[in-house]
Amino acid sequence: MSGNVRIELPQARKDSHLRSGGPAITVRNLDKSYDDNHVLDDLSFDFERGKVYVIMGPSGCGKSTLLRQMIGAEHPDAGEVLIDGIDIHSNSRRLRDEARRKFGVLFQSSALLNGLTVAENVALPIQRHTDLPQSTIDLMVKLKLELVGMGNALDKYPYEISGGMKKRAGLARAIALDPAIVFYDEPSAGLDPVMIGVIDKLIKDPTSKLGITSVVITHEMPSIFRIADEVLMLWNGRFVFRGTPEALRNSTDPLVRQFLKGDPEGPIGAPRQLSELSERLIGPSARDARSATP
């Protein structure tokens, strides 16, 4: 019976619910260190509304740290993050909550609450932030889950579904309150290529249809070229590239080139390069012998 229910998807809503005409996200002079490790170094940028921004960079370059500062999960050492003009690290819990209502987050692990069903997970932010009757909440939940193709898994628990389904359920929860901004932390990690394509479409479609601003942390190259309006590459706590996917493809920057080609030799040091390893194990003669070989 439920398979025959037709649900109208929400109409395009270009205005979202950003109040100001300014950027969706503003980051000013962001600085973050862990002990002696300077992870974010005086970062400043703006993200306009209605675009997909991809932040990429080698592992350990500070992508996740940047995301954690942007969603207010960690306090920066210096600088500020404004979500639609509101400081996400404000001392006032009311202001922080107001900023948080403007965005949803799809976590790398999906972060669904394991004690709740998929439907209850999606209902959670709606119950917390609205006074809607349960019947309306149920309808909204079904609508969001249909949107991500999960209409048949409402009563399943997170541990009963696959990784791809968890990602989609996590996305349904992230967009439950129609946020103006959605953050995605490595949305394609651990998924097969078809599921990556599905997730990419789910990122791209709402952005163009509903005017949502999407910030995606990933290093999945095909995804980047499929979804990004703008790409930012983070390296040593700073952005070394910002531009369109086309500009990324044509970039001559050695860092960008090495990252795109996946070359282990280059300015981005691989954990331990082969030449260095052989030199350490066999001695400098190994390198000399190799270079002497015609």
Partner: peptide, 16 residues
Amino acid sequence: TMAVSEEILALDTMGI
């Protein structure tokens, strides 16, 4: 386990 799997962080970002 909830902390490790980011569930606590997810609650916080949902304003809960």
